[in-house]
Design a protein around this nucleic acid. Structure first.
Lengths: 214, 214
DNA sequence: ACCTGAACACCGTTCAAGT
DNA sequence: ACCTGAACACCGTTCAAGT
């Protein structure tokens, strides 16, 4: 009824220029909001436009903090894998490996919608190299050949991701299959580590002059 | 200039009703065209609208032969995996397993854009159960326990898909890593198959009362 | 049965204008 | 520096009207 704020109150109380500094976004806020939105409503329902509306902002505003949709989703995916940490290294190295695998799987299962993001884009996030190094170092410290340890990392990663994909595609729980497959990989690791480098394993042992490059 | 076909020649020579029987689509034609389009231009550029235009048809026409986009992409993905066949079973079972893994990987690498479809939706196509059965039967015939063979199938599948995903995400070739990981799985398979069922492997041996259900 | 026309309800992204 | 308004060039899907 009073007409003193007719320029500022148009369009739902939002002026045209930049808002006051305490109502501005930053990249962190955008990524966090995207993460929470996907975790709640699922990856399929996610779009930049609904994200913008939950942030009470026009879609174009997001581009001040994020290069594009892919950049944003990479950041969300990275959050999930970056939150994973290797367990303490107690006990024998082989059961430690099994523990790593189970924990990785657990992390994906705790956030199924965010796991969808990771699985659908299999992004090689910048957070992973430290994990690979930590994994290999633990095994090398226990006397395992670096090349075998490296292969072990990939095998573990593959069966964790594979089980998660299967669970996404079909509905049913894949825990038993996962346990069996993990058991198989563990047996391979033990066998390869305890066997002298004969025959079939020469290539494995010498194929990677530098194993620290991811 | 002549006005005798003014009703049939509107809109680029296409009438409004159904076309003559020889110019109609069927599901096969739609799936094949989608497959070729993705194989050529890549999965990212694919849409129902450009598919329709290559078929010289309006987008809505596709819905006479395909339930929706997902249904179509499932069919495309299935084509790739259905085209894979197990090798002849000659030689020892372990090198046969390695051959299966290398062939699966080869098939994905032959059609990288179609592999994108498979990897992004990890569809459990109806063509796979026969493959699983064939794989397990071959190993059982060689004296391998069915549960171990089952785990072996999953491990092989996982490392093939895992290597393909890695190659999609990062640019570089993952052949050496794949070979190492395959070597590891093969070692696990050999170890598990030749070892009496003691300790850690009891659960593996008895966890699957029916192993033929996929 | 099968295609068109036309619409509906969305997308991601760009960019000048405004603060 | 950072947001809005407005547009551009797309999407997948539905459905009556037409043959």
């Amino acid at each position: 009824m009073n007409a003193d704020n007719k320029t500022t109150a148009r369009h739902g109380g939002r002026r045209r220029g930049a808002p006051p500094a305490d109502r501005r976004l930053d990249r962190q806020a955008v990524v966090t909001a995207a993460r929470d939105l996907i975790a709640q409503d699922g990856y399929a329902r996610f779009s930049l436009r609904v994200l913008a509306s939950t942030l009470d902002v026009r879609p174009a505003a997001l581009y001040n903090h994020v290069r594009d949709r892919d950049d944003l989703l990479d950041a969300v995916a990275e959050w999930l894998v970056a939150g994973f940490e290797l367990p303490e290294d107690e006990g024998d190295w082989l059961s430690w490996v099994r523990q790593v695998a189970r924990r990785m799987r657990e992390r994906l299962r705790e956030h199924p919608h965010l796991a969808d993001v990771v699985l659908s884009r299999s992004a090689a996030g910048p957070a992973r190299p430290a994990l690979v190094r930590g994994f290999i170092e633990r095994l090398v410290r226990a006397g395992v050949d670096p090349a075998i340890a490296h292969a072990g990392w990939h095998a573990v990663l593959d069966i964790v991701v594979g089980a998660a994909s299967q669970e996404r595609a079909r509905g049913n729980d894949q825990s038993e299959v996962f346990d069996s497959t993990l058991q198989l990989v563990a047996a391979g690791l033990q066998s390869a580590a305890s066997r002298p480098p004969d025959g079939a394993f020469v290539t494995l042992l010498h194929a990677h002059p530098t194993v620290w490059d991811g």
